[in-house]
């Protein structure tokens, strides 16, 4: 479903990605491993259409992402769910409203929103935090809200960019378990992380990047540099 064909990205003479090729199949759980600056975030930026590749093509469901017009990009983004290291919640909205927002922008009816939002918050383990504001939540709770928001419009793929980077050990495993559960329910997961322990315990496919190049791509992989 996701295809990178010979993709390079050069920022002001600095190569962030160098002739990258890989394919992610539906319902796969793939970890993108590598140190900071290896090119993990650039891959995500290309996938959501925030950046254009300098060379090569990126496809999602056979659609070339970089042929989509700027004002049509939001349709692409509704097919994906994004989770970030810094959570990126809307600070002036409650937990409920943050999650509902993703449905509102997609044009869901009020009835659907009222029905789905509490359900998804229950799934991520926050059924009693509906009216809390992000500032009243712990890091782990914020990340669960972010995951709920990413999941709410039933995307075919979730892109998680260092989702455990700001969390303690306990919360890290909670989030990883949650991502595994979501994957079991049929959603493709792409997890970018430099957390060796997380990757080594997942026993899933690992694509290892270094200095913008793929140096290893293996099933049941480990993070070795």
């Amino acid at each position: 479903m996701i295809v990178f064909q010979n993709v390079s990205k050069i920022y002001d003479g600095c190569t962030a990605l160098d002739k990258v090729n890989f394919t992610i199949r539906p319902k796969e759980f793939v970890s993108l491993a590598g140190p900071s600056g290896a090119g993990k975030s650039t891959i995500f930026k290309l996938l959501i259409g925030e950046e254009q590749p300098s060379r090569g093509k990126v496809f999602l469901d056979k659609q070339n992402i970089h042929l989509i017009r700027e004002n049509e990009l939001h349709h692409l983004r509704r097919k994906m769910g994004m989770v970030f290291q810094d959570f990126r919640l809307l600070s002036d909205r409650t937990v409920y409203e943050n999650v509902a927002f993703a449905m509102e922008v997609a044009g869901s009816s009020n009835k659907e929103i009222v029905q789905d939002v509490p359900q998804i918050l229950e799934l991520v383990g926050l059924p009693d935090k509906l009216s809390a504001f992000p500032s009243q939540l712990s890091g782990g709770e914020k990340q669960r809200v972010a995951i709920a928001r990413a999941l709410i419009h039933r995307p075919s793929v979730i892109l998680a960019d260092e989702p455990t980077g700001n969390l303690d050990l306990l919360n890290t495993w909670d989030i990883v378990r949650l991502l595994l559960k979501i994957n079991e329910l049929g959603t493709t997961i792409v997890l970018a992380t430099h957390d060796r322990e997380v990757i080594n315990n997942l026993s899933k496919r690992v694509v290892t990047l270094d200095k913008g190049r793929i140096i290893r791509d293996e099933e049941n992989g480990r993070y070795i540099l």
């Binding site: 983004r77 509704r78 919640l89 809307l90 922008v105 997609a106 928001r149």
Partner: peptide, 16 residues
């Protein structure tokens, strides 16, 4: 500005 970028990432159209 940060909230605006979040809204866009969640799939909000420019108009929204």
């Amino acid at each position: 500005r940060d909230e605006i970028s979040v809204m866009r990432l969640v799939g909000a159209s420019n108009w929204f």
